[in-house]
Design a binder for these strands. Sequence first.
RNA 1: GCUCGGAUGGUGGAAUUGGUAGACACGUUGGACUUAAAAUCCAAUGACCAUUGCGGUCGUGCGGGUUCAAGUCCCGCUCCGAGUACCA
Length: 943
Amino acid sequence: MNSKTVGYNFQQIEKKWRAYWEKNKTFHALNNTEKPKFYILDMFPYPSGSGLHVGHPLGYIASDIFSRYKRHKGFNVLHPQGYDSFGLPAEQYAIQTGQHPSKTTQENIDRYRDQLDQMGFSYDWSREVRTSDANFYKWTQWIFLLLFEHYYCVDTDKAQPVNDLITLFEKEGNSKVNAVCSPGIEVFSAEDWKGFNPVKKEEILLGYRLTYLSETEVNWCAELGTVLANDEIINGVSERGGYPVTKKKMKQWSMRIGAYAERLLQGLEMIDWSDSLKEMQRNWIGKSIGAKVFFEVEGHDEKIEVFTTRPDTLFGVTFMTLAPELELVQKITHPDQKNEVEAYIKATQQRSQRERMADVKNTTGVFTGGYALHPFTGDRIPIWIGDYVLADYGTGAVMAVPCGDQRDYDFAKHFDLPIKNIFKGVSVATEAFSDKATAVIDHSDFLTGLPYKQAMEKVIEALEEKGCGSGTVNYRLRDAIFSRQRYWGEPIPMYYKEGMPQPLSLEDLPLRLPDVEKYLPTPEGAPPLGNAKSWAWDTKSRKVVGNDAIDHKRVFPLELNTMPGWAGSSWYFYRYMDPKNDEEFVGKEAAAYWKDVDLYLGGSEHATGHLLYSRFWQKFLFDLGLLPVEEYAKKLINQGMILGTSAFIYRKPGTQTYLSKDLLNDTETFEPVRVDVNLVNASDELNIEGLKKWQVQFETAEFKSNKGVFKVGREVEKMSKSKYNVVNPDEICEQYGADTLRMYEMFLGPIEQAKPWNTAGISGVHNFLKKYWRLFYNEDQWIVNEEKPSKQSLKALHETIKKVTSDIEQFSFNTCVSSFMICVNELTQMNCHSREILTPLTVLLSPFAPHIAEEMWERLGHAESLVAEPFPIVNESYLVEDTKNYPVSFNGKMRFTLSLSLSLDQEGIKQAVLQDTRTAEYLQDAIPKKWIIVPNKIINIVY
RNA sequence: GCUCGGAUGGUGGAAUUGGUAGACACGUUGGACUUAAAAUCCAAUGACCAUUGCGGUCGUGCGGGUUCAAGUCCCGCUCCGAGUACCA
């Protein structure tokens, strides 16, 4: 559209400079320079089939601006990009079409790269990584092996080799070992250990390893044919696709992230992440302080261990509830209750997670017929089971104190169990009393009369003395399931000998993903890798061989599960530092030089997934001395999502008649129908001819509108292909150019805020760039002059330098754009075309609109790119003016701003006169006898 | 339910963190230049009253409070968004 007009030909300019940057390797970062380093990281994208929409680049633009700014400021900037290229959509496409996921992935990556390049990002592409690249996942597999070879030692509070553990076991058994382990590991002596057979030994060791195989209750999604992690489930259905999720027992690899719970919590204090994000991680880790208490069971040797945050209410226990899944339930159930209990357990298992969640109000449970004994009073406490108690939190058993906990209260009321009030001066006739702050304990033997805190301390002391409990800390954070029944993921480098997993070694890696004919699970229900014809491990040749060679002596079957999506993304940021290294996952020198990420940009949707898991791996690799820091991202910014504005037309039910939005009335109901937003103009008018061509169903439809103007209804939603509200950056770039798109996305609002995309305002930003151009050219006449700039124009420039610099530092990019607009407007009005002004202005603008800035820089007569040019420095003396607002401190106490009329001479400010008359009565008293003007522009008033 | 955010013109959003609210942009209206359009430029634009005059009143979700001064701080609500959920 503008390509023929004289002046700002953005298409030509942008093409030219993209080629220039590529040819000159302008953005290649070196691993050693005199300059200070600065590492700016984007969360790498999953290359989906639909390409980028205008929402994706928001964070990339912000990080690119900051990268370019930091280069101007003299930093050696590492700003890489790559692809999180293992994942479900490519696999599902493979299931449908038979096309190998690597092919789909490659095509998608090519498209992403084109789109990213189009926007002029200053990535160092020579460092690109892809998680699905064998040279990359080799090291992901290696880290997995390291996790397998280590356990978490509580005494040293770090990961230690499992071999050390074996030495310990051989010497003194496990009674003195203080390590994080799976529940239910027996105590054994050195003698016992030596007597165990290898399988038994391996079983025990698995209970300590940081990645371990265990029979776990998992979230199973039948439609997707895989297990899901807790953070992949939203409201009881799968995040992807929204399918139901049920519980199922499976042998699964897990990561003992729980071992790092406390350090993950503490580490949050060291990093500059948003409060909301830290809070999310804190909640997810869910630390609670309380006590564990053992209850003896009448007539059995078994003890029931419960976790409670309110041990102070121990004397208020009137019954006990166990999770139905606990094995203990079988043992303590009285024969008379057996049928009822079993029926209940069966019913619970069949209910899906969603049903269970939807059913929170209904209280269900069954009496087991067993009784526990109170540790202090010896009272008989009936033991119930109920599905409000979760098997995988705490110990799966609760001591029910109906007077102090609402759920226990409801349960007691429902089954008519006794409620004992142990709070002084409080009625529990209608509900439980759970306020810790005001609670005073009553009817509780040695606790009577104590407030919450003292009662806590005292009861824990008593429990420990009696040997039937202790103070303890519990975390909500569960170990992370690491097996996925999928094809398109990293193979787990393990084979099975006598049912026990055996690790490959580093030299064997990468264990490459085998080819399969079908990407679906096998008919026997094994994961897709079960379809592979060659998926066995020859321990002699140390090679993958055909399955027919399996003899369980020398050749063994390989693991069929693959790793989850978060495996590769948990460490990729270190690979960028040294992407071609074949010897190490990252070279020591490279890691020591770049150290950590100075600024990480990405969406908050990864708060309890990627951002937690990657911190866990970081801490683990740090423990092993492989990485230099314990937290890898010093600062993190969450860019808000750009939302789509969906368009709707309204159909009369059962007809093919559609109404314009302004013809809707309250008496009839209409069905809203989505239409493609690209068929709607800025004033919500629908292009009906376009619509008819868009989908066949509209060809014959009837459209009723007001005077031929058909209006659509609007709604803000997530941008998605299925909602027809996707706006593509390619078209914007074509019409307005990448510089306009970049600045407009920043101008839209604060980077951290979610906001709907609206193309209507883009002309304002585009006009700004055209105005900037016209500072250099009148028609096609070069009008830059060598005149000394006026005081005014210097002031305009330096105000902009000051504002833009401080706003970039604070990531307030939207106000930067405004500052540029003000500056250019002022210079235009002053008719200022001075080289002395335009040169620094161009550098100032270049992080935001790099193409046009480079072009003007060249036309100003510079041979080299301006990328490494120093950022302009503000000269405050230009900012002093005749009238200005200054903050004033009065009596060293109050501060306010006064408008002063200043007279200037060579020495600076000579005289200041108060002009301001606001709050006049007050100021009359406060008006000073004398002014003292100090250099930082604060005017102190003294008497 | 709990935790964390947020609410400012017709719209997106500014406001030096307690000091002239509404910067900048979109949109709208009027004007200039054009045969015309595009492009560009100029002016007006929170609401209400007064415009024969260059002024006044009210205004940052609602109700209180602190202060010479509150969009900003405190107390109590309403609504919206995000996260989480039988977590003992």
